[in-house]
Design a protein around this nucleic acid. Sequence first.
DNA 1: GTCTATAACGTGATAGAC
DNA 2: GTCTATCACGTTATAGAC
Lengths: 199, 199
Amino acid sequence: MVVSRRRPRGETRREILALAARLLQTRGYHGFSFHHLAEGLGVRTPAVHYHFPTKADLAAAVLRRFRDDFAWWREQPTLRALPAHAQMEAFLDLEARYVAEGKVCPLGMAGVEFASLPPAACREAQALMHELRDWLAARLAAAREQGQCTFAGSAEDTALAVMAAAQGGLQLARLNGADDFAAVRRALRTALGGDPSAP
Amino acid sequence: MVVSRRRPRGETRREILALAARLLQTRGYHGFSFHHLAEGLGVRTPAVHYHFPTKADLAAAVLRRFRDDFAWWREQPTLRALPAHAQMEAFLDLEARYVAEGKVCPLGMAGVEFASLPPAACREAQALMHELRDWLAARLAAAREQGQCTFAGSAEDTALAVMAAAQGGLQLARLNGADDFAAVRRALRTALGGDPSAP
DNA sequence: GTCTATAACGTGATAGAC
DNA sequence: GTCTATCACGTTATAGAC
């Protein structure tokens, strides 16, 4: 016999993670509360605590899910079929979507609030950063080797610069409008020796 | 007759602004309280409220002071005597000092917490961003005209990219160590056509 | 799994003495 | 200018019923 539920099993947990991710990317860790979460989901705060005992648990889980999502995304056949430089553009497309949603990069949030973030959340953010850096550096190195890019300097330095420019660009876009992220992206394309007139 | 004070007139206000700036750049707006300020200054919280009635007032005043400091800095004769590209390097030196102090760029903090920041603070941050962007774009345009840089694309786009990379680099440095800011800076020099082996 | 109720605490802010 | 005392409120978190 099936007991009726307002949501399927595991659905509330997923919705909490999704809303918490959005709040983390728009208001920062200290800028939202369990009340924001509960209100947004149509439940009470203890329901949230049932799924994530503490706010620190929740933040770590959200960042962990960013890592999982990235690991999944980068293994997609449709992505892996693309040339290396197009894979990097696809990553910048992800960031561009954040702009449209008024969000910043989770690594930007973590960087700004690092000193006041729960330790477990810091560790997840650091792991995400390493994974993203290594992936980007590999794409950049391959793109240069295959003549799709012409940047000088090491792929590792360049990967960090691309990450920094992208997350900084998201933040500038919040201060001054989405065009500023587009401007940063144009400058990035120019600097990497690709085609600056691309979308 | 002079009444003795623990601090000279106006000194406490300055110290509050300095400590608040440091806390804003390390913990974010929602990551510090009047208690942090009072404890750090050896006073009680109402003493802070005397100088800045609300936290919103304080945040706006701190960002206003960043604007004033930048306006003063960029007019210094010793800076203005430098070639345009060296002026831009001097700006990156300022950011590098933040790295050593474990701070992020105030514009990064404002970008991340934008949606939960007091309106007056948002306006000051936006004004600072515009002033910095215009100054950087002018230096970059002059540097290219005088053959000190060789970047392609518009000076405005490039200025935004430099700002984004610098503030993103500060945040990455918090996650993974100061070397990452140095790496971003190297990549920046390479991309702008300067000498990447500079300090 | 979600609820009501409540505890325990931190925070922004004010009143009024000194 | 700074203090003590205090307030109102929001926040994280728990207990126990359903």
